[in-house]
Design a protein around this nucleic acid. Structure first.
Length: 586
DNA sequence: GCCGTTTTCGGCCCGACTGTTTTCAGTCG
């Protein structure tokens, strides 16, 4: 029985909470468990898999002690030390910890009242029973709001949706004459695939006015927190917004602080301590005299620490701080020169409404001509139409070949009339359950390129998924594997597969893996992009647009490439035509 | 409990907000 990373993290957090409740050990032992929990949660491979391979030491913040506890956990399903620590603490305490505003101490206090469940707690607040038992009305109210928040806590927003919501808030804030500058920060600025809350910084000399103005924004349903420099509000839509206001002279420190990530900031502050500095959103403080050196820009902030500014997308404490230090010292390897949207010269995964008999996954909504027109408007040098093909279940091999021929002729004719852009003839075909492709090889010879993807049986075992992908990567007609993990954000987890083996095969056979920019895919994921690059795999960023409007999603795919430390040379659709055509043997 | 180009001992990120604390504990980001 596999124990998930999030389950392991919860177990470790419960131990940390138990230490606090029972007042065992010191705060640093508690933090050690919390750090271990964070580290497990951020791990991009299953910790139990690493344990089976004897590689648990690769997870930071897991020392000798906790590793031995995990050893026991994976072998027996429980840890006697943890059971001992958690003894006499009611189970409801650990459930209550999931409610915002309730920490270990308060959870224990609630359990001490004899409350056995979250439902029970809710009833006791509503009936006034909690207040009768000695809780203040304000505290009861706070808990109630926390409970409501848990219930309303929707899924995380998809990045493009978060983008649009943030633009509205920025537009509102800019209307205030007290606002000098405003930026969306946090996970949105780091371009994480999904975003929880929306964070904003404002540069202003009139902080309290800005905070007031923010709290009065149309659509705000509740003000959750309000201070002189910050506020948190909930919108009627359920989205939570955080605002932090700073003075222009220290705005660089504010940007840095609120962009995160948390682990990046912690690593940075530890480093600063060693240099005799203390960091905060107000600037860089010299510990010896307590003087704060204000930083107007992020570059000034990072420069004081002796490093180049790492781009927001890679601020995850996965080596970027060390690289930024080396870069400033003229040592290698420095920071990567990340690929940019403007480097993109074409999109190879576009679905048209070209007539098709029983398409396997539904056609796109626009004509090939309109797609080509849109591609020209985006200043692309080439555009690849990659419709789904008819399959064997409803068509004979001869019918499929005939359809591919007709479509090929149509595209060739269109190219003759179109001089300003190269139109490539592709298809997106299925990798079937046995690893074979959904159309005959005799049809594939007509194509400029072939994208293969798994569109069924995503929940197969690791062995089966790996085998299907390897089969596709070993097929001479396949050029690209689309959306390799097949995750659907908020809906379906990534398929389980032996990624190192898959990346080795892709590199060896010169196959491309796709970074699919469709909002709920963003697949290949950022962490796997980085792993793939280390194996020498080349990538292609495609939008998988089914309507021409969706061709504008390219920047979100590029963002995932950037989060995976990709440079333009790693992404073939940034290459000039000569090199691009050479890769595809066109 | 973890960790190491000043350390295998002695440190461990920083600050805001809330409540009822008259100087601080708990919680959060």
């Amino acid at each position: 029985m596999e124990i998930s990373n999030s389950r392991i993290a919860k177990i470790l957090r419960d131990v940390a909470a138990s230490y606090i409740i029972k007042n065992i050990g010191n705060i640093f032992q508690v933090r050690a468990y919390e750090n271990a929990a964070d580290s497990v949660e951020h791990s991009t491979t299953e910790v139990q898999d690493l344990w089976e391979e004897g590689r648990l030491e690769e997870i930071p913040a897991l020392g000798e002690k906790i590793r031995s506890y995990l050893d026991e956990l994976f072998k027996t399903g429980k840890v006697s030390h943890f059971a001992e620590i958690k003894k006499d603490i009611p189970e409801v305490v650990f459930e209550l910890l999931d409610i915002p505003g309730i920490g270990p101490k308060l959870a224990q206090k609630i359990a001490d009242l004899g409350i056995k469940s979250i439902e029970d707690l809710e009833i006791q607040i509503k009936t006034g029973s909690l207040v009768q038992k000695g809780f203040s009305a304000k505290l009861a109210q706070n808990i109630m709001e926390g409970l409501r928040e848990v219930k309303n806590r929707g899924k995380r927003m998809l990045l493009p949706y978060a983008f649009v919501q943030a633009e509205k808030v920025v537009a509102y804030l800019k209307q205030s004459q007290d606002v000098i500058d405003v930026h969306p920060l946090g996970s949105l600025r780091r371009m994480v695939a999904t975003v929880g809350d929306l964070d904003f910084s404002v540069s202003s000399n009139n902080n309290e006015k800005v905070v007031d103005y923010f709290c009065k924004m149309p659509g705000v349903s509740r003000v959750l927190d309000k201070g002189s420099y910050k506020a948190t509000v909930a919108l009627k839509s359920g989205i939570q917004l955080d605002l932090l206001v700073g003075e222009p002279n220290s705005y660089g420190a504010l940007l840095q602080h609120f962009t995160g990530s948390k682990s990046h900031n912690i690593k940075l502050r530890e480093l600063a301590n060693q240099m005799g500095y203390s960091l905060s959103e107000y600037g860089v403080k010299r510990v010896e005299d307590g003087k704060i050196i204000q930083t107007k820009t992020e570059d000034e902030f990072y420069k004081l620490l002796g490093m180049r500014t790492p781009l927001p997308e890679i601020r995850e404490d996965t080596g970027e701080i060390e690289a930024a230090l080396r870069q400033a010292q003229g040592k290698l390897p420095g920071l990567p020169k990340l690929v940019e949207s403007k480097n993109i010269k074409g999109d190879l995964h576009l679905h048209s409404n070209f007539p098709i008999k029983s398409p396997s996954h539904g056609p796109g909504g626009d004509t090939i001509e309109d797609i080509v027109k849109k591609a020209r408007a985006l200043n692309y040098e080439f555009v690849g139409i990659a419709d789904h093909s008819p399959g064997f279940s409803t068509n004979s091999p001869q019918e499929i070949i005939k359809w591919v021929k007709e479509r090929t002729n149509f595209i060739r004719e269109l190219q003759k009339r179109t001089k300003s852009i190269r139109i490539l003839n592709g298809l997106e075909i299925d990798i079937l359950g046995n690893g074979s492709l959904s159309i005959p090889d005799e049809a594939l010879v007509y194509l400029d390129y072939c994208i293969a993807g798994i569109h069924s049986g995503h929940r197969g075992t690791k062995e089966i998924i790996t085998k299907r992908l390897l089969n596709a990567l070993n097929n001479p007609y396949v050029d690209i594997v689309s959306h390799p993990t097949n995750r659907l954000l908020n809906e379906r987890d990534s398929s389980d597969a032996d990624w190192p083996q898959i990346f080795q095969a892709a590199a060896k056979n010169n196959k491309l893996l796709e970074i699919n920019a469709f909002p709920n895919r963003l697949d290949l994921r950022d962490d796997l992009v980085r792993l793939a690059l280390k194996s020498g795999v080349k990538l292609v960023v495609n939008t998988d647009a089914h309507q021409i409007e969706q061709m504008g999603n390219m920047l979100f795919g590029v963002a995932q490439a950037r989060r995976g430390w990709a440079t333009a040379k790693d992404i073939v659709n940034t290459w000039d035509w000569k090199n691009f055509a050479k890769w595809f043997n066109m």
